[in-house]
Design a protein around this nucleic acid. Structure first.
Length: 122
DNA sequence: ATAGGCCCTG
DNA sequence: CAGGGCCTAT
C-alpha cells in the first residue's frame, strides 16, 4: 500500500485508457488495489483520465481536419494504420514503452470505431 | 455540499 | 499533467 500515486501508476492508468475512457471511481479502486485511496487520490486519478481524454480528442480532431483537407468525405475512406500519424501520436502518449501489444486488425477496428463514434455522436 | 465533466492555462 | 473556474446531477 503506497501513500500516493507513482509514475508506474500513471503508466498503468494510460494503458487502462485503452480500455475505458470514463472509468468509475469503483473501477479505479479495484484496478489500483495497491493504492490507499482517499478523496485526493481519487480526484487525481479522475483528473488524469480527464486529461487523457482531452489529449485524445485533440489528436482525433487534428487527424479529422487533416483528412478533410485531404478531401476525405466519408469515414469509409479513412485508413488508420500503425504508421499513420494518429496511431503514432496515441501510441507515443499512452503506450510509449509498447507495454501493450496491438494487433493491426484490432488497432484499425478500435480506432476507426472510436473515430466514428466521435464524429457522429448523436 | 460533493463528485465528476469540460474548458482553458501554465 | 496540475490548477482553477464553471456547470450539472446527486
Amino acid at each position: 500500500m503506497q501513500e500516493g500515486l507513482s509514475p508506474n501508476h500513471l503508466k498503468k492508468a494510460k494503458l487502462m485508457f485503452f480500455y475505458t475512457r470514463y472509468p468509475s471511481s469503483n473501477m479505479l479502486k479495484t484496478y489500483f488495489s495497491d493504492v490507499k485511496f482517499n478523496r485526493c487520490i481519487t480526484s487525481q486519478l479522475i483528473k488524469w483520465f480527464s486529461n487523457f481524454r482531452e489529449f485524445y480528442y485533440i489528436q482525433m480532431e487534428k487527424y479529422a481536419r487533416q483528412a478533410i483537407n485531404d478531401g476525405v468525405t466519408s469515414t469509409e475512406e479513412l485508413s488508420i494504420t500503425r504508421d499513420c500519424e494518429l496511431y503514432r501520436a496515441l501510441n507515443m502518449h499512452y503506450n510509449k514503452a509498447n507495454d501493450f501489444e496491438i494487433s493491426s486488425e484490432l488497432t484499425v477496428m478500435t480506432l476507426t470505431k472510436r473515430f466514428q463514434a466521435r464524429e457522429t455522436p448523436r
